[in-house]
Simulated assay, not measured.
Amino acid sequence: MTTSVPRRVAIVTGGTRGIGRASAERLAADGMAVVAVYAGNKDAAEETVTGIIATGARAVAVQADVADEHAVAAAFDVAEQEFGGVDVVVNAAGIMLLGPLAEFDLDALDRMHRTNIRGTFVVNQQAARRVRSGGAIINFSSTVTKLALPSYAAYAASKGAVDAVSLILARELRGRNITVNAVAPGPIASDLYFEGKDQETIERAAKANPIERLGVPADVAEVISALAGPARWINGQTIYVNGGVI
Rank of each mutant, 00 (worst) to 15 (best):
M1R: 12
T2Q: 08
A10Q: 09
A10N: 05
I11W: 03
I11P: 03
T16D: 04
T16F: 02
R21E: 12
R21N: 07
E25V: 14
R26Y: 09
L27Y: 03
D30M: 03
A33E: 07
V37Y: 00
D43F: 02
T48Q: 04
I52V: 13
I53S: 00
A54Y: 08
A54W: 10
T55N: 07
G56D: 08
R58Q: 15
H70Q: 12
V78S: 07
E80T: 12
G84C: 09
V86A: 10
V88N: 09
V88R: 03
I95T: 13
I95D: 03
M96V: 13
M96T: 11
M96R: 14
L98K: 09
P100G: 05
A102I: 10
A108R: 14
R114A: 15
R118P: 09
G119I: 05
Q126H: 15
A128K: 09
V131K: 01
G134V: 08
I137D: 05
I138M: 05
I138W: 02
S141N: 06
S141R: 03
V144C: 06
T145C: 11
K146S: 14
L147R: 13
S151A: 05
S158K: 05
S158Q: 07
K159N: 07
K159S: 00
K159Q: 02
G160H: 06
A161Y: 10
D163R: 12
V165R: 00
V165F: 14
R171N: 12
E172L: 01
L173R: 13
R174H: 13
G175Q: 04
N177D: 15
T179L: 09
V183I: 15
P187F: 00
S190K: 00
L192S: 04
E195T: 15
E200A: 14
T201C: 04
E203A: 15
E203H: 10
R204K: 13
A208G: 07
P210M: 01
P210C: 00
I211M: 13
V220N: 03
V220E: 06
A221F: 08
A221I: 07
V223M: 14
I224K: 00
I224V: 15
A226T: 04
L227R: 11
L227H: 11
G229K: 09
Q237E: 15
G243L: 01
I246A: 11
